[in-house]
Nucleic acid binder design. Structure first.
Lengths: 227, 227
DNA sequence: GCAAACATACTACCGGGTATGCTGTCAAAT
DNA sequence: ATTTGACAGCATACCCGGTAGTATGTTTGC
């Protein structure tokens, strides 16, 4: 955990470090990324980073937590929408898939964070942070499972083992984290089409006949949700 | 690349090291795993490992290559089966999904290997090894795309952007690498049921109406392919 | 003038790699 | 059959570069 005092004193400087760390961590992973490398990326030196973050692990945790926040934000419109469970699910998938590409660096760090589960003890404080993060992951998956169950209750789809299906679903939605590379000509429309295609695959995977009409209805719902 | 002479002189000792390395690398990743840690896992010291592998990177490459071999093996029955493209595809997915759980350690290492793409230069020889590996990955995906196109040609399914669909498909099939943890009571039937469920999700994602009859037909085909 | 916001200099340690030492085995020489 | 030496198969000891973390300047804004 980072001292909130330091974090809010100069928010933009803090954010700059966080972004640079995300960029570095996502390329080489936590272990292979040195604090000096992050500092070089910033055109600075270690001193600056250690002024905001007490340790490398804390820096990583901050990046990871930010990634989690972005993830939750991405599914919120769908999760909170007042619509059928199937439409909510699709909107969640679409939002998360889009965020996967928009915030690719943070999402790749989030992926790397999975490994640290067995990273041994470190401090008691660190262990708490890890446990908190694991709970967040569970909460995240629980939201999908909640809406999935609602969809089943609505008779919109039939599912075998819930855990297996939800994880297959999430894997498909998360997939861009592996292959997406940002380009100059990335525009929201293009990313949107990517997300559309993947959402369709995921929804069909559930056994839903995801027609283009339903896709359009989902997009309408999305516009409405943001108002 | 590892000298074949050393590898074949004492195959079982070589394999033991390879397995231990897979086990260690898959938990902490390449960078965070020390050669000493692998040696400790073996109840030995560095000397033994460096007697078989010239460097840490070579050890990792050997594990990764083995993982690739296992992957190719896992989809071969489906890829080479004489059946409809859709059935072949399902059999490929099922085989790979099963291998994902059976050889979880090697597969997690394979996942970690993705990151090393931008790992900088190292030696010219290492760069060759990396390029060879990337070509293998492309070949692997190409096999799926080939059968996918055949399925489209057969009129069995309709697909939007091929790359997006193939990667969503693969992501769903690969998903167990993230959540599967081996247990004492793991039996082939259990893993088979997991693979069944995931295969169904993936096939449905393609828009195929994957009935239990087709699933059974696929299993029949699998038995036949092994004879 | 004083503290925040850094940069610089330094320490301690870990881990990859190497050089060297030790032991059992096996095959050829006697 | 015994000797011997040569090499595989490791273990031990050591070197050294890189890195996390710290301690101490230095500058800039208020």
């Amino acid at each position: 955990m980072v001292s909130l005092a330091v974090q809010t004193r100069k928010p933009e400087r803090y954010e700059e470090i966080l972004g640079a760390a995300a960029e570095c961590f996502c390329q080489q992973g936590f272990a292979a990324t040195s604090i000096d490398a992050v500092a070089r990326y910033l055109g600075s030196t270690k001193g600056r980073i250690y002024h905001y973050f007490p340790s490398k692990m804390d820096l990583f945790n901050a990046v990871r937590d930010r990634g989690m926040e972005l993830s939750f934000e991405s599914i919120r419109p769908g999760y909170e929408a007042e619509a059928s469970a199937v439409d909510r699910l699709a909107l969640m998938a679409h939002g998360q898939c889009y965020a996967m590409m928009e915030h690719i660096a943070y999402m790749q760090v989030l992926l790397d964070g999975l490994r640290q589960r067995r990273y041994g003890a470190t401090t008691e404080f660190q262990r708490k942070a890890m446990q908190r993060h694991l709970e967040q992951r569970d909460d995240f998956e629980a939201r999908y499972i909640e809406v999935l169950k609602a969809a089943v209750a609505e008779g919109a789809l039939r599912i075998g083992e819930m855990r297996l299906v939800s994880r297959s679903f999430l894997a498909a939605v998360n997939a861009p984290v592996f292959w997406f590379v940002p380009r100059e000509d990335d525009d929201p429309e293009k990313l949107g089409r990517f997300a559309d295609e993947i959402t369709q695959f995921a929804m069909q995977g559930l056994g839903v006949d995801w027609t283009s009409e339903r896709m359009q209805a989902m997009h309408k719902l999305k516009e409405g949700a943001y108002v």
